[in-house]
Structure formats: structure tokens, C-alpha cells
């Protein structure tokens, strides 16, 4: 497995976890838990964004990875 596809896999996992965190934030009535989940979801989203741009970069620089 190439690095690019590994990064993509991690990206997919993070997206799933981020969605779950948002769901937990909605479900819980506990304010401190809600805040922790919301903060974590936001921060995970920014990590996802950074990772996504990294993937785009890799694909532009090394087109042979595209599609993996």
C-alpha cells in the first residue's frame, strides 16, 4: 500500500470519527460532555481539512497516486 492510499484511509477514518463525535455532542444532555464533544469534533474537522489538502497536494505532485 502506498503512503498516499494510507493517508486517504486515515482521512476516511477521521471523517467517520468526526461524524460520530458530532452525533455524541447532539445526544448528550451533559453540558461538559457536550462541550468536549463539540470541541473535539471541530478540532478533528480542522485536522481533516489539513490532511485533505495534503492529499490533494500529493495527488497533484505525484499523479500516479491518483485514485488510490
Amino acid at each position: 500500500m502506498t503512503v498516499a492510499s494510507q493517508v486517504k484511509q486515515t482521512l476516511a477514518g477521521l471523517k467517520s470519527a468526526q461524524a460520530s463525535l458530532e452525533q455524541f455532542a447532539l445526544q448528550t444532555q451533559d453540558k461538559s460532555a457536550k462541550k468536549a464533544f463539540t470541541d473535539a469534533a471541530n478540532q478533528t474537522q480542522s485536522i481533516i481539512n489539513a490532511l485533505q489538502s495534503r492529499v490533494n497536494q500529493i495527488e497533484q505532485q505525484e499523479p500516479e497516486y491518483k485514485g488510490f
Binding site: 503512503v3 494510507q6 493517508v7 484511509q9 486515515t10 477514518g13 477521521l14 470519527a17 460520530s20
Partner: peptide, 19 residues
């Protein structure tokens, strides 16, 4: 679901360190 999410986050974190 919760434990799985936690595991997923930890796994992703480990992957990033590996990269």
C-alpha cells in the same frame, strides 16, 4: 459505538505519527 470511535481516533493518531 463510543468505544469504536475512541479506537478509531487513537488509530488515526498512530497512523499520523507513522506517516
Amino acid at each position: 459505538h463510543r468505544q469504536a470511535t475512541l479506537a478509531l481516533l487513537k488509530q488515526s493518531q498512530a497512523s499520523l505519527e507513522l506517516f
